[in-house]
């Protein structure tokens, strides 16, 4: 069994056409060569985006005694309680647990959409608890994010949605014209760039979202229930994309309660219950034991 294969014996590329695969390999090869460092013709761009996260061998994400309480009249709701965790660069981590277990809070702490009530959250060497508000956009540019509801801009085509992530970082129009079709092909939407989100299926919209999250070539990609609204077959397609992205060295953290998917992938599983980590296991299944 080659290292490219998932445990169920299906290679992640199976779902991709040959042409898409070629584009994908080309793109991923280039990424592998630059290895997240600034070099060559894309050096400038990397300085603008991903360099916000510090390079190095240290862990990509560190949480230390993180507690998150949502203030309320009845003393508030504790969403995360004393969570400590490390995720190394290049890891693929599933975050599982029932609704309300704290998965989304966990994810949103990483993009500083929320602030922890106490404890430290460190992403790529940056202590988010001490990050100034004005720097938040730079943090988010260096993290790819995928949401359950896709969060695509409704008035823009698939192409424009992906391009927006590049326009934000001041990428030149010439590079945008080159890179966006490449990434769209990579996610299997080479022909559908001119469609608007409401003209695409859920799976296709999520592919656009993946393309947008990846076009900056972030070193960390987080996904909050990316397959939550999708049927099983479509979910596998998205999963394969994330897996391919992870294979290029990108750290992926994915919150999900898609049991089949987690069981197939056999990756590190972190399980939350009532805001506490009750399990952290490598090459694991969704549930502890059957």
């Amino acid at each position: 069994m080659s290292s490219d294969q998932t445990p169920n014996g299906q290679t992640p590329e199976d779902a991709l056409s040959e042409a898409e695969e070629r584009a994908q390999r080309r793109m991923l090869r280039r990424r592998g060569r630059t290895g997240g460092e600034s070099s060559g013709r894309r050096g400038l761009r990397r300085d603008k985006s991903a360099s916000f996260l510090r390079d190095g061998d240290g862990p990509m994400v560190v949480m230390e005694d993180v507690k998150k309480v949502y203030e309320g009249k009845d003393g508030g709701t504790t969403a995360l309680d004393d969570v400590s965790l490390e995720v190394d660069s290049g890891e693929f981590v599933f975050l599982v647990g029932q609704s309300g277990s704290g998965k989304s809070t966990f994810i949103r702490l990483l993009t500083k959409e929320l602030d922890s009530s106490s404890g430290r959250v460190v992403v790529g060497g940056r202590d988010l608890t001490r990050l100034r508000r004005g720097r938040i956009p730079y943090l988010r540019r260096s993290i790819g994010t995928i949401f359950q509801d896709y969060k695509l801009l409704p008035g823009r085509t698939a192409y424009e949605n992906v391009a927006y992530a590049l326009e934000i970082i001041g990428e030149s129009p010439r590079n945008i014209k080159r890179m966006v079709p490449e990434v769209l092909t990579l996610v299997g939407l080479g022909e559908k760039g001119e469609r608007y989100p409401n003209e695409l299926s859920g799976g296709e919209q999520q592919r656009v979202s993946v393309a947008r999250s990846f076009v900056n070539q972030p070193r960390l990609l987080i996904a909050d229930e990316p397959t939550g609204n999708l049927d099983p077959d479509t979910s596998i397609g998205i999963m394969q994309l994330l897996y391919r992205i992870n294979r290029t060295g990108t750290t992926v953290i994915m919150a999900t309660h898609d049991r089949d998917l987690v069981d197939k992938m056999q990756m590190r599983v972190v399980e939350l219950e009532d805001g506490k980590i009750i399990r952290d296991q490598r090459q694991a299944r969704y549930a502890l034991a059957d």
């Binding site: 943090l139 988010r140 969060k151 801009l153 934000i168």
Partner: peptide, 16 residues
């Protein structure tokens, strides 16, 4: 506002 929210989430600065 949703559009603005999304722009924030993908890393747009306020002035952008």
């Amino acid at each position: 506002r949703r559009e603005v929210e999304i722009m924030r989430l993908v890393g747009g600065t306020n002035w952008f």
